[in-house]
Design a binder for these strands. Structure first.
Lengths: 216, 216
DNA sequence: TCATCAATAAGTCAAATGCCTTATTTTCTA
DNA sequence: TAGAAAATAAGGCATTTGACTTATTGATGA
């Protein structure tokens, strides 16, 4: 089986290629590209590999855009995303771009090799957390017709005002000034917000509030 | 680990239970229900199992409806669908009902046992063809309307990765750990980000990056 | 009317952050 | 191939933040 790798980090790329030498009976690493542009150019100008292992964060052209291009030109060519990032957004975009699998870089080499075989047999290799996130994404995207948003976490009106200020990056003093209260009070409100949202810093609070449409 | 099985076919149920005796150190089959109604009544009136292996086609109440009921009453209870059916309709409905995994009955017993452990660690066991179908379902169910727009502020690739981490509320150390670099370097990158985005704290940086679609 | 809760205020203290300087290595490009 | 840009690393220092404690007031509701 002919495998190509798109990975900008030299160390990681070499490490993967080296580890694959164990499976040299089965897999041949036919190319290693340093970015999305290189891998697209490679498949356009060379005999097609069976599978591409694709990093996401790469210069010139990222892995998701490269996947999109390659997938539209060669739908048969299987692409497995291999990255450290497991956030919903990237996962979602990778799937839309046409990736056939999504593995995290901390998977043992055996799992990656297994994934390549799986993908060539019509399967979809996914790391455990990824599989779980995929189900949730599907569930959420299907329910998006009748949803009104998220929880309100029983936040009080004042706490939501505080969150609005946090969103602007105001510190305790600035927030206190805006709301005509003492900075100590602001701190107390923020502590209560953290407890209710189950977070422990401002960014997480703001992100969670945005995601749950508590603030816009 | 306490496992319950809902399976109407006596032969199959006994066969599975028998095969599980190999893993009796790890798994205890606490109950075998003959239909959906029985499994729902069981979880309502007995100590909760950790995992339920759920067939779909069953009399009285099918596995999908049973999954829905159990999942809404006990969201922590993991349910793995174990069936011969792999059609999109059933898969889709099972996911919506809240199933945490979907395995085909022809999987070897080892894979099923592995799936139980996976599901208890937050993963989502899926047979190869199921995983593949899930990706397709997700892809089709959301043909998104992607639009671009916004400055990139000449941020380097690394700086964008840093921003991705900041979005999660990671501190310097956690970010450094994620990106395999020193916390000092993270701080330097963040300083450069602040200068380029013309902000002076993490929240403002994340908000500006989100607004300009530098990150999502 | 008694209890609960939200909002207010104030304080301690360790840890994290923002802002500054310096310096080496790597990568890219003119 | 030389210089620029980016990434890396380290450390100082004042400020901010997060996690605690304690306490008063006013509103809501059972």
């Amino acid at each position: 089986m002919r495998v190509a790798i798109a990975e900008d980090n030299d160390y990681l790329a070499k490490s993967i290629i080296e580890k694959f030498s164990i499976f040299k009976e089965k897999f041949e690493i036919v190319h290693r590209a340093k970015n999305g542009k290189e891998i697209v150019e490679y498949v356009l100008n060379n005999p097609q590999p069976d599978v591409i292992l694709m990093d996401i964060e790469m210069p010139e052209l990222d892995g998701i855009k490269a996947t999109e291009l390659i997938n539209s030109a060669f739908p048969e060519l299987k692409i497995i995303i291999l990255t450290v990032f497991d956030d919903d957004e990237k996962l979602f975009n990778a799937i839309l771009a046409g990736a056939s699998g999504y593995l995290l870089k901390d998977e043992p080499i055996g799992k990656i090799a297994e994934g390549i075989e799986l993908v060539l047999n019509g399967g979809a290799p996914m790391s455990a957390t990824i599989a779980s996130k995929t189900l949730n994404l599907l569930k959420n995207s299907a329910q998006s017709t009748n949803n009104q948003g998220g929880n309100d976490f029983n936040l009080s009106r004042r706490e939501i005002e505080i969150l609005e200020c946090l969103k602007f990056g105001y510190d305790y003093n600035k927030t206190a000034e805006k709301l005509f209260i003492s900075p100590f009070t602001v701190r107390k409100h923020i502590e209560n917000i953290y407890r209710k949202l189950q977070v422990n810093n401002k960014i997480q609070a703001v992100q969670k509030a945005l995601q749950n449409k508590i603030i816009r």
